[in-house]
Write a protein that binds this DNA or RNA. Structure first.
Length: 460
RNA sequence: UCCAGAGUAGCUCAAUGGUAGAGCAGCUGGCUGUUAACCAGCGGGUUGUAGGUUCAAGUCCUACCUCUGGAGCCA
């Protein structure tokens, strides 16, 4: 008999004389004449209730159907006499496929997220993490659907790279050379002898190669893993995370901000529409204001404010900040929080930042002071999107490289884009996990990644 | 990396410097179309690690480890 997923069994339009379900026992309640087994197979948040009558020849096996055990059950799908479910299964056969003893770490009661993090290999079997990772899967597909609907072309940019995309953080070196050899000879490693004949790293951004493809295929995006060796220990940073980077030719900062806003809204709307059970769980157990906040975000345009105006708002707010607000300085977390959480109370796009605090590739504005950069800030998380219009003028880009003391030889192919058929183009990066945090209300990035990599932690 | 907080039973947490406890989980039995089932009983501890103060340390002091929250950096 073919296996039926629990989600399909529970949504069946009619009773079934024959059904087979397979999954893991969440809990069992024994009576004298029968047992109730709650079975979950991860296809949906809900369990299916199975009645195993004591007269069944397989009933003796029930002692092994403990919490955590894997079981396979055949029987009939019937309307439930109980209150909490419409369908249940009256078992005819029971097979315990994989036993689980009393040391099984997941109990019927709630566990803290910190504890579940220590058992990352078992936490997908919990309601919360099963929901998070079902939503993660759905969100990834929504990303592709959004871009496909708008004729964007998906580009696989390299994970091993020789360029460090200046300003994007510390790099993980990729090498096949024996690092221990260095300490003995005391000589510096000559990476020209390394595998690729030069120093190479794990990518910190697919932007530069994405620009190459945008300047050929017009609208493109990348979606893949990204690595930062920064020693950051916060709930919003991971050493390995996934990032989405669209890049558009013949597009200015305005178009970039428009795309970022419609993208963020599309992703939220898709999950709200397709994962109602998971969203209800998050709203109930993770963040009671979640659904209300997401609806608010969907219902109105993001606020847009220039960096200069944002600084003025902060200066005139009367708020006392730990760090002073000053034109020319980066906005601190507390400043961003004030803008999104107190002043505008919605996602806020800040644009036109001072050139001193932004990387070399951003387009210089005519005022000589700012660049065409934009960040989308959201309540509770902070920066979720960072993007810009790219400097497409060859002489200007050359000047930026000089100003940032970067070697033009390392960017020869990037400069060539400006030399041959250069066009205005723009793009941004959206942190996939941060988006997932915003949608689920889960406040720690380690809890929206299957196996988080953070400084000092690569277990599993 | 910096600042703050926390590490006690499998889990969540108690315990004025003075005999380490409870709920849940587990085990045994009972009972009921139950549903975070219920009732009774039972077992369960090197109090993160190493030192120190004290007649006496889970509690005070020092160092280290781990985790959490915040900051910086950013997605």
């Amino acid at each position: 008999m073919k296996r039926t997923l629990v989600k399909h069994a529970l949504s069946s339009p009619s009773p079934m004389d024959e059904i087979k379900v397979q999954g893991w026992v969440r809990t069992r309640r024994d009576a004298k004449a029968f047992s109730f087994v709650e079975l979950n197979d991860g296809s949906t948040l809900k369990n299916i209730q199975i009645i195993i009558d004591a007269t069944l020849s397989d009933y003796e096996k029930i002692v092994d159907a403990n919490t955590g055990a894997a079981v396979s059950i055949t029987g009939k799908l019937v309307a439930s006499q109980g209150k909490n479910q419409s369908w249940e299964i009256v078992a005819e056969t029971l097979e315990v496929v994989g036993k689980s003893d009393s040391s099984y770490p997941l109990q019927k009661k709630g566990h803290s997220q910190e504890y579940l993090r220590e058992i990352a290999h078992l936490r997908p079997r919990s309601n919360l993490f099963g929901s998070v990772f079902r939503v993660r899967s759905r969100l990834a597909q929504a990303v592709h659907r959004f871009f496909d609907e708008q004729d964007f072309i998906y580009v696989h940019t390299p994970i091993i790279t020789a360029s460090d995309c200046e300003g994007a953080g510390e790099l993980f070196r990729v090498t096949t050379m024996d690092q221990n050899a260095k300490s003995e000879s005391d000589a510096l490693i000559d990476y020209s002898n390394d595998f690729f004949g030069k120093s190479t790293y794990l990518t910190v951004s697919g932007q530069l190669p994405a620009e190459v493809f945008a300047c050929a295929l017009s609208n493109v995006y990348t979606f893949g893993p990204t690595f930062r060796a920064e020693n950051s220990n916060t709930s919003r940073h991971a050493s390995e995370f996934w990032m989405i980077e669209p890049e558009m030719a013949f597009c200015d900062l305005q178009g970039d901000m428009d795309l970022a806003e419609s993208f963020v809204k599309y992703l939220i709307q898709d999950i709200v529409n397709t994962c109602p059970e998971e969203m209800n769980l998050f709203n109930k157990f993770v963040d009671k204001g979640l659904q209300e906040r997401l609806k608010f975000v969907l219902d109105r345009p993001f606020q847009r404010v220039s960096y200069t105006d944002a600084v003025d708002i902060l200066l005139q707010s009367g708020e006392t900040f730990e760090y002073p607000v000053a034109y020319g300085a980066n906005l601190q977390s507390e400043h961003e929080r004030f803008l999104t959480e107190k002043h505008f109370k919605c996602p806020t796009t800040v644009y036109n930042y001072p050139k001193e605090i932004k990387p070399f590739y951003m387009r210089a504005n005519d005022d000589g002071k700012t660049v065409a950069a934009m960040d989308v800030l959201v309540p509770g998380i902070g920066e979720i999107v960072g993007g810009s219009q790219r400097e497409e003028r060859e002489d200007q880009l050359q000047a930026h490289l000089d100003h940032h003391k970067l070697n033009p030889e390392d960017y020869w192919w990037y400069m060539d884009l400006r030399k041959y058929g250069s066009v205005p183009h723009s793009g941004f990066g959206l942190g996939f996990e941060r988006m997932l945090m915003f949608i689920t209300g889960v406040s720690n990035i380690r809890d929206v990644i299957p196996f988080a990599r953070t400084p000092g932690s690569a277990e599993f």
